[in-house]
């Protein structure tokens, strides 16, 4: 049973129970979502020639730990890479939420000249293909002496147009003007109003944005591969890439690495998931 708290138990909203069809859809989606991840495990535990088997084995095999040891042999700094990804992802998430909330609040609730053009500018910048800037950005980062450091991943990612756009939407939708008016009449300054009133209200949406920022950072592949050279500085995606052998593909090794790089995040999400649900549900009760 969920954590939904009924405001007035006598007047129950007529939620209908989730139908069988609903559960079926969820089960199907779950299967489809998880299957590739499960398949990685199958291949890693059965060996490379598993890829060629028809019909494919659907049960795990005995070679998983051998493959894992090969992964660490190929890249002793594998665990370090996962930690690096967590570190970078968290910093980026916090920074993006922080700066986006500030700017999003200004666009949503403040009136200042030239604002409309700035908003359009933000939306416009989202339309520029990022692939174009690679060479120039690399030059910039190299001038800052950040090549082959995690800073090269963090600094360019501190702000995001998407985040500003998101926060503006969220604040617009969730923060009533009256609340801010009342606070301002009571003598609160803009920053006070922002800090004490707005932030608590948008907490769970901020959390969701932070999550997305974290994911984007975690999944980023092209740029980290370009700027990181020393294996101890790798992130998860670059580390998994390190498992390639010359021309051939050792599928078991690659899948093993890919599996190992996804697992900690999955476990983290299971724990975070509970908080996410509770946080979101609390918000629902409040709203």
């Amino acid at each position: 049973m969920s954590n939904y708290v009924l405001k007035n138990p006598n007047k129950r909203p007529k939620w209908h129970k989730v139908s069988f069809f609903g559960y079926l859809m969820l089960a199907l989606i779950t299967f489809i979502s998880i299957f590739p991840f499960y398949w990685m495990f199958i291949v890693a535990s059965n060996g490379t020639d598993e890829i060629s088997k028809i019909p494919p084995t659907l049960l795990p095999g005995p070679r998983f730990f051998t493959v894992v040891s090969h992964v660490y042999e190929a890249l002793p700094a594998f665990n370090q890479a996962l930690l690096n990804s967590f570190y970078v992802g968290t910093l980026v998430a916090v920074a993006q939420v922080f700066f986006s909330a500030l700017a999003g609040f200004a666009f949503a609730k403040l009136n200042f000249r030239g604002q409309r053009y700035l908003v359009l500018f933000v939306v416009f910048t989202m339309m520029l293909p990022s692939q174009l800037g690679i060479i120039a950005l690399f030059k910039e980062i190299s001038l800052m002496n950040l090549i082959d450091t995690l800073g090269a991943l963090i600094i360019p990612a501190l702000v995001t147009a998407f985040g500003v756009f998101w926060m503006r939407q969220v604040i617009d939708a969730q923060v009533p003007n009256e609340l801010l008016e009342a606070a301002s009449i009571d003598g609160a300054g803009v920053f006070r109003a922002y800090w004490s009133l707005v932030l608590p209200i948008i907490a769970q949406s901020s959390f969701v944005l932070g999550l997305f920022s974290f994911l984007a950072s975690w999944n980023d592949f092209l740029w980290p591969l370009l700027v990181l050279n020393t294996p101890e500085n790798f992130t998860a995606q670059v580390a998994v890439n390190q498992l390639k052998s010359s021309y051939a593909i050792d599928y078991a090794l690659n899948m093993g690495g890919a599996f190992l790089s996804t697992l900690p995040l999955l476990i983290l999400f299971i724990f975070v998931g509970r908080r996410l649900v509770r946080g979101v549900m609390d918000g629902a009760v409040k709203g």
């Binding site: 060479i135 690399f138 030059k139 190299s142 090549i147 082959d148 370009l226 700027v227 050279n229």
Partner: peptide, 11 residues
Amino acid sequence: LYTQCAAGGAG
């Protein structure tokens, strides 16, 4: 290699 050479050999 291309990006590195374009940046004067950085990286």
